[in-house]
Lab assay of single mutants.
Amino acid sequence: RLRTTITPEQLEILYQKYLLDSNPTRKMLDHIAHEVGLKKRVVQVWFQNTRARERK
């Protein structure tokens, strides 16, 4: 499986959303995924990875 490439514009939106809520609901994940044009699962994993990186 190929990795999904996230553009700088998408990253900017994801980080803005992360600052508002680091643990979004399913509904919010759907909305964010639609807004940035990525699959919900990709957005979900991005949030998981970002939370894990923050803990280190």
Rank of each mutant, 00 (worst) to 15 (best):
Q44W: 02
R3K: 14
N23Q: 12
D30F: 04
R26D: 15
T25C: 08
N23H: 05
D21H: 03
A33V: 04
Y15H: 08
R55L: 14
L2A: 11
V42M: 10
V45W: 06
V42T: 12
Q44I: 06
D30H: 11
R51H: 13
T5N: 07
L19I: 03
L14N: 00
V36D: 01
F47K: 01
L11C: 03
V36T: 12
E12G: 07
I13Y: 11
R51Y: 12
P8W: 13
E12Y: 04
I32D: 00
W46M: 00
Y18I: 03
K17S: 09
L19H: 08
T25G: 05
K40D: 11
I6S: 02
T5K: 03
A52P: 03
T4N: 10
H34Y: 11
P24V: 02
T7F: 01
D30R: 09
L11R: 12
Q10T: 06
G37P: 03
N49M: 06
T7I: 05
T4Y: 07
L20Y: 04
R41S: 15
Q10L: 03
E9D: 10
P24W: 08
H34M: 09
V42G: 04
I13E: 05
R3G: 14
A52K: 12
M28C: 03
K40P: 14
L11M: 10
V43F: 01
T50D: 02
T7C: 07
K40E: 15
E35A: 09
D30L: 04
K40T: 15
V43I: 09
R26L: 14
T50Q: 14
T4C: 03
Y15I: 13
T4S: 08
G37D: 05
K27G: 12
R51P: 01
N23P: 00
V36A: 09
L38S: 03
V36F: 03
R53A: 12
H34K: 14
E9W: 04
L29S: 04
Q10R: 02
N49E: 15
A52I: 03
L20V: 11
V42S: 06
K27V: 11
L38D: 00
L19C: 10
K17I: 03
N49H: 05
R41H: 12
W46Q: 01
T50L: 08
P8H: 10
R41Q: 14
H31E: 14
A52R: 06
G37I: 01
Q10A: 07
K56I: 01
L2N: 14
L20M: 12
H31G: 14
V43Q: 00
R3E: 15
S22I: 03
P8E: 07
H31D: 15
R55W: 11
K17G: 03
L11W: 09
Q44K: 07
R3A: 15
V36N: 02
H31Y: 11
E54K: 02
R26E: 15
A33N: 00
R55T: 15
Q44E: 14
L14M: 08
E54F: 08
E9Y: 06
V45K: 05
D21N: 04
D30N: 06
W46E: 00
P8G: 13
P24S: 02
T25W: 00
M28V: 09
P8S: 09
E35G: 04
P8K: 05
R41I: 15
P8L: 15
R3S: 15
H31W: 07
D30T: 06
A52W: 05
K56E: 15
H31F: 10
L19N: 04
H34V: 11
W46F: 04
I13G: 07
R51D: 04
P24K: 00
E12W: 02
V42A: 09
L2R: 06
V45M: 11
T7Y: 04
V43T: 03
L38G: 00
G37W: 00
S22W: 04
V42L: 10
T25L: 03
E9Q: 10
T7D: 09
L19Y: 05
R53L: 11
Q16Y: 04
L14E: 01
L14P: 01
L2D: 15
L11D: 13
E35D: 10
T7E: 12
R51Q: 14
L29I: 13
R26W: 15
W46R: 02
R53I: 09
Y18W: 05
W46G: 01
R41M: 10
S22H: 07
E35P: 02
L29T: 06
K56H: 08
Q10M: 05
L29E: 08
W46Y: 06
H34N: 10
G37C: 06
A52D: 14
V36M: 04
R26Q: 15
R53Q: 10
K56D: 04
L38T: 03
A33W: 02
Q10D: 14
T4Q: 11
W46N: 00
I6W: 07
G37H: 05
I32M: 04
R3D: 15
W46H: 01
Y18C: 02
Y15D: 12
F47I: 00
A33E: 02
D30V: 07
S22A: 11
L20K: 08
V45F: 10
N23D: 05
D30S: 09
H31R: 07
K39S: 13
T5R: 04
Q10K: 04
T7G: 10
R26C: 14
L29N: 02
K56A: 12
D30I: 10
E9F: 04
A33T: 04
R41G: 15
T50P: 03
K27D: 14
V36W: 04
E35K: 05
K17T: 03
R51N: 15
T5W: 08
A52V: 05
K56P: 07
R41P: 08
K56W: 06
N49G: 07
V43S: 01
L20G: 10
L19S: 08
R41F: 08
H31C: 12
Q16K: 09
K39R: 11
I13T: 11
Q10H: 05
G37E: 10
A33D: 01
I32K: 01
Y15Q: 14
T25D: 13
K39F: 00
F47A: 00
I6K: 05
